[in-house]
Amino acid sequence: MISLNYYLFVSGILATIGIFSIISKNNAFSILIGVELILNSAIINFMAFWRFNPSFETNLDKVSGPLVGIFIMIVATCELAVSLAILIKAYKNYRSVRTDFIDEMKK
């Protein structure tokens, strides 16, 4: 049986890739991609810890991993919809989605 550490390693690597994407890129698209990768790694973590939980006693224990996963997916969908709306609005005003061009509030 694959032990817990394997899943944690993979999710750690995915989270690192997401963090790198967020802080190294200048356009808003890549930042959104990084956020999605981080959320996915969080779901893998939740699922792995649920799987290796020794007790499946109550009804909530049986499904807590997939339940949290589904709610993370719901939040990710909402976040993506709103942030894409913001992005298109910013594109209309600035003709760009690069984060170093959109600096109206810094001035």
């Binding site: 993979v10 698209f29 779901i43 699922m47 792995a48 649920w50 799987r51 996963g69 589904i70 894409l84």
Partner: peptide
């Protein structure tokens, strides 16, 4: 595929439907 290995086929199908079918297409 990880979710299939973790014995949760339900979340695997949800992952394909939500992430590949909705979020990626939206992006």
């Amino acid at each position: 595929g990880y979710y299939v290995l973790l014995y949760s086929e339900f979340l695997a199908i949800t992952q394909v439907v939500v992430y590949v079918g909705a979020i990626l297409i939206l992006l």
